[in-house]
Write a protein that binds this DNA or RNA. Structure first.
Lengths: 251, 251
DNA sequence: TAGGTGTTTTGACATGGATCAAAGCGGCAG
DNA sequence: CTGCCGCTTTGATCCATGTCAAAACACCTA
């Protein structure tokens, strides 16, 4: 069991790249950790965020159980977070894109709680947690914003609990599509046309559904004129109709 | 709609009590925010945590949408957190007991994301967030531990996502009972006999099940000799059997 | 003590989504 | 170009849990 883990670890190290990160020039600045910081504060943060790391599609940024020492800001790319249960069943607990922070689950117990797997070739900025702690004792804007990002992760997860606990299949999928749309729009992409980076099975895992159910819902939405789907490409045709499904409950 | 809210708010204010909190003497110290602080640091924290507030059974500590300004440490009692969806459906997102922190969901957006409702008469310590921020810039042990508590809340929630996303009804309920057992034990209560503070419906809401399903699972566990149940009183008879249900997956 | 209200249990039945199965599609390697 | 493999779609059937209903029970107040 330990052998393949090690091998994977090393191959990850091979693609590790040390590049100057430079939050100050990053176009994701306002979505990411430095949001709201002054120029001077940005420079301090830049000194801390000094390593960029490339992760190839299919590789892990970190895996459950590994020692926690850094959090990661996604510079480009797309990740899934996955928790594996003792008996082998697993669940996708989230999808993350540029400007979002990964790894905050590790602070509590000093080791990561989930795997973060790249769904496309990606680049992340490493932020050593101990230095982030130090710096956020000095830069209150950073402290504040870091707390906000943790808190928003808590709120995001309770939203997912709502999906999983009370919504029916089609509502979950409508909510998922609208969520993707809104986050992509915030990053300057089209809100109405996008490529999904994950498989139907991964969507299903995230939403507590089987891949066939996801596929059927897509077909249904297509037939109802709400979306156009071609494999991983999705075009939202009737966003209002989609919102109705997800806000409009039991008929 | 606004009227009853206001009335409720005021009745909460009536039971607001200002008492010296004194973490230094609190027997939940090691489970709560001050865990791991030195004597001197504890005194600083005591200066900040200066208000205790009594919440009667059925009342809210805070409600979704209210302005966030404090987090709360539960001194005694029991709470549920509940998110209400636009269409009226709601979900219990957690149960909280002594030593646990409530309200961290409010930091991200400046207003609370859920209701925190007392399931028995309770006492909480109010911790003004702005002063906590200040103090944790000075006391790194406090900073560290506060981050840990936020992170653990993230991990706890991904555990619930796992419950909701991949487990079947009886597994969820076994997991729920074992979780209660373990948290009560950590607080010095019996791990094998306890009173549930919540109804079957609230358990069901938390676990994404209907109250009848919860009731049937309890009956089934009783018939199988795993537990004894009498209304809200639960006695775990065969803890190993219970663990088998929850760790033992698809047969 | 009696009546009322909210909670729990249990039964009978319905159904949404899972499961099983097969075929279609698309991309990659040889 | 061909064959393979992973992903997706669609159909047929099954079953875990939801829904509806009724009775028992517990607790509170008068």
């Amino acid at each position: 069991m330990a052998r393949p883990e090690l091998a994977r670890q090393q191959s990850t190290h091979l693609v590790l790249a040390e590049l100057k990160a430079a939050c100050a020039n990053c176009n994701l600045r306002e979505l990411c950790l430095p949001a709201g910081l002054s120029e001077a504060e940005l420079d301090q943060l830049d000194a801390l965020v000094n390593v960029r790391r490339k992760i190839k599609r299919g590789e892990s940024l970190y895996r459950a159980g590994e020692t926690f020492d850094s959090i990661y800001a996604i510079r480009s790319g797309f990740f899934k977070s996955r928790v594996t249960y003792e008996d082998g069943r697993d669940q996708v607990t989230g999808f993350s894109m540029g400007g979002e922070i990964l790894g905050m689950d590790g602070i509590g117990q000093g080791s990561h709680n989930c795997d973060a797997v790249a769904l496309e070739d990606s680049i992340v900025c490493s932020i050593p947690y101990l230095r982030l702690e130090e710096l956020s004792r000095e830069v209150s804007g950073l402290q504040r914003h870091f707390h906000k990002m943790m808190s928003r992760e808590i709120v995001r997860e309770s939203g997912v609990m709502m999906l999983l606990g009370v919504m029916r299949a089609e509502e979950r999928i409508a909510a998922f599509l609208l969520n993707m749309s809104q986050r992509l729009e915030a990053r300057g992409y089209s809100a109405l046309e996008f490529h999904l980076r994950m498989t139907r099975e991964e969507i299903g895992s995230y939403l507590g559904l089987k891949l066939e159910t996801v596929s059927r819902a897509f077909s249904r939405f297509h037939a109802d004129g709400l979306i156009a789907v071609d494999q991983k490409f999705v075009k939202i045709v009737d966003i209002k109709g989609l919102k109705d499904i997800y806000a409009h409950h039991v008929s």
